[in-house]
Computed example of a mutant assay.
Amino acid sequence: MQIYLPIADIPVNIFLLLAMGAAVGFVSGMFGIGGGFLMTPLLIFVGITPGVAVASVASHIAASSFSGALSYWRRRAIDPALALVLLTGGIIGTALGVSTFTLLRALGQLDLMIALSYVVLLSSVGAAMFYEGLRAMIRAYRGGPVTIRRPGSHGWIHGLPLKLRFKRSKIYISIIPVVAIGILIGFLGAIMGIGGGFILVPLLIYLLRVPTSTVIGTSMVLTLVTMMVATLLHAATNHLVDAVLALILMVGGVTGAQFGARAGQRIRGEQLRLLLGLLILAVGVRFAIELVIRPEDLFTIREIGVSQ
C-alpha cells in the first residue's frame, strides 16, 4: 500500500515505514536511546532525501522523548539545574546547526556532509562501544573484576572555573564543559537528525561524573527541547518537516519500543553495549559503502535561480 509523502515528494509503502518505525522503536526500547542515528539512515536508504529525513526525524525524536522525560520527572530522576545549563548550550548549538544545515543546502553540499558525518561519528563511536563491550564480556568470562569509575574521583575538568553545585546530582563542577556538551549535542542533532543520547549519556557519566540515577532523565529533557527547537527552525527556514512521515514513524516506534524494553531487561549490560556498538558500527560502514559505490545516475538536477 503506497502513501504519498508531500514534503519528501515520493510515494512510499506505508507498511515499510511502519516496520522501520517498529524496528527502531524496538532498538530504542532495548538500549534506552533515541534511535535517530538509525532512523535517519534507514529513511535515506529507502530514497528519502537526507534533508527531509533529518528534519522529519527530529520531530519524531521530540515526540518519543516526551513520554520518557515525563516519566522520569514524576520519579524525580531529573536534575532541573543541570538540564537548564545543558539546554543553554543545546539551544545555541541547535541554532548553529540549523544555520549550517541551511548554508550547506544552499551550496549543494548537504547530502555529502550528512553522509560524511554519519561515517565518521558512527564508525568511531560504534567501534569504541564494541571494543569496550567485548572487553567487559571477556573480563566477565574469565572471572576478572569489573572496572568501576568512582563518582567521587576528579579529573582536570573539575579544576575549571565558574563552578556550580547541582544538588539533585550531588556534583560541583564548572558550567563550561556542561554548556559545551549541550552545544555539541544540539549541533549534531540539527545537522544529523539524532537525539545524541548515545553520546550524551557517556559524556555525562564518565566526563562529568553525573550519577546514573539522574543522567538518563536529564538527557531526555535535553533531547526533547533541542529536537523541538530543531523541528521548528527546520520547518520555518527550510520547509523540510514531513508531518505525515513523522506520524507514521511514531505509530510504529511506540509499538516497537514496548517489546524492545522487555527484551533489554533479559540481556546483560556488557552484551547490550556490544550489540549496540556493533549496530552503530554497521550503520557507519553502510554509509561509507554508499559514498564509494558508483551511482546509477551520474548527474543531478538542481535549481540555481533565474538571472534578472
Results as ranks from 00 to 15, higher is better:
residue 2 Q to P: 07
residue 4 Y to S: 12
residue 4 Y to G: 05
residue 5 L to W: 08
residue 8 A to P: 08
residue 9 D to P: 10
residue 10 I to Q: 13
residue 11 P to V: 01
residue 13 N to Q: 06
residue 14 I to T: 10
residue 15 F to A: 07
residue 15 F to Y: 13
residue 18 L to F: 07
residue 20 M to F: 11
residue 20 M to W: 02
residue 24 V to Q: 08
residue 27 V to P: 00
residue 30 M to G: 01
residue 32 G to E: 07
residue 38 L to I: 15
residue 38 L to H: 03
residue 44 I to S: 06
residue 52 V to L: 02
residue 57 V to G: 01
residue 59 S to F: 15
residue 59 S to W: 14
residue 64 S to T: 06
residue 65 S to W: 00
residue 68 G to D: 06
residue 68 G to S: 09
residue 69 A to D: 08
residue 72 Y to Q: 10
residue 72 Y to L: 04
residue 73 W to M: 15
residue 75 R to P: 01
residue 84 L to E: 10
residue 84 L to T: 15
residue 85 V to G: 02
residue 85 V to S: 05
residue 88 T to I: 15
residue 88 T to N: 08
residue 92 I to S: 14
residue 95 A to K: 13
residue 95 A to N: 11
residue 95 A to L: 13
residue 97 G to A: 05
residue 98 V to E: 00
residue 99 S to G: 11
residue 101 F to Y: 13
residue 106 A to E: 14
residue 106 A to W: 06
residue 108 G to C: 08
residue 108 G to P: 07
residue 115 A to P: 03
residue 117 S to Y: 02
residue 119 V to H: 02
residue 120 V to A: 11
residue 121 L to S: 09
residue 122 L to D: 02
residue 124 S to H: 13
residue 127 A to Q: 04
residue 127 A to P: 00
residue 129 M to W: 08
residue 129 M to V: 01
residue 135 R to Q: 13
residue 136 A to S: 14
residue 136 A to H: 08
residue 141 Y to L: 14
residue 146 V to G: 11
residue 146 V to R: 14
residue 147 T to G: 08
residue 147 T to I: 13
residue 150 R to T: 12
residue 150 R to C: 12
residue 154 H to A: 14
residue 158 H to Q: 12
residue 162 L to M: 15
residue 162 L to D: 10
residue 172 Y to H: 15
residue 175 I to A: 09
residue 177 P to I: 00
residue 181 I to Y: 06
residue 181 I to R: 06
residue 183 I to D: 01
residue 184 L to K: 03
residue 185 I to A: 03
residue 187 F to Y: 14
residue 191 I to Y: 03
residue 192 M to W: 07
residue 201 V to K: 05
residue 203 L to V: 09
residue 204 L to T: 02
residue 209 R to Y: 09
residue 211 P to K: 02
residue 213 S to L: 13
residue 218 T to Q: 03
residue 218 T to I: 07
residue 220 M to L: 15
residue 220 M to G: 02
residue 223 T to S: 15
residue 224 L to G: 06
residue 226 T to M: 08
residue 230 A to H: 00
residue 231 T to V: 02
residue 234 H to T: 03
residue 234 H to S: 05
residue 235 A to M: 06
residue 239 H to T: 12
residue 240 L to Y: 05
residue 243 A to W: 15
residue 245 L to W: 06
residue 255 T to N: 07
residue 260 G to R: 04
residue 260 G to D: 10
residue 262 R to N: 08
residue 266 R to Y: 09
residue 267 I to E: 05
residue 270 E to S: 15
residue 270 E to I: 04
residue 277 G to N: 03
residue 281 L to A: 12
residue 286 R to F: 07
residue 287 F to Q: 10
residue 287 F to P: 05
residue 288 A to W: 10
residue 294 R to S: 12
residue 294 R to K: 15
residue 295 P to T: 03
residue 297 D to I: 11
residue 298 L to Q: 14
residue 298 L to V: 07
residue 300 T to G: 10
residue 300 T to E: 10
residue 303 E to V: 06
residue 308 Q to E: 14
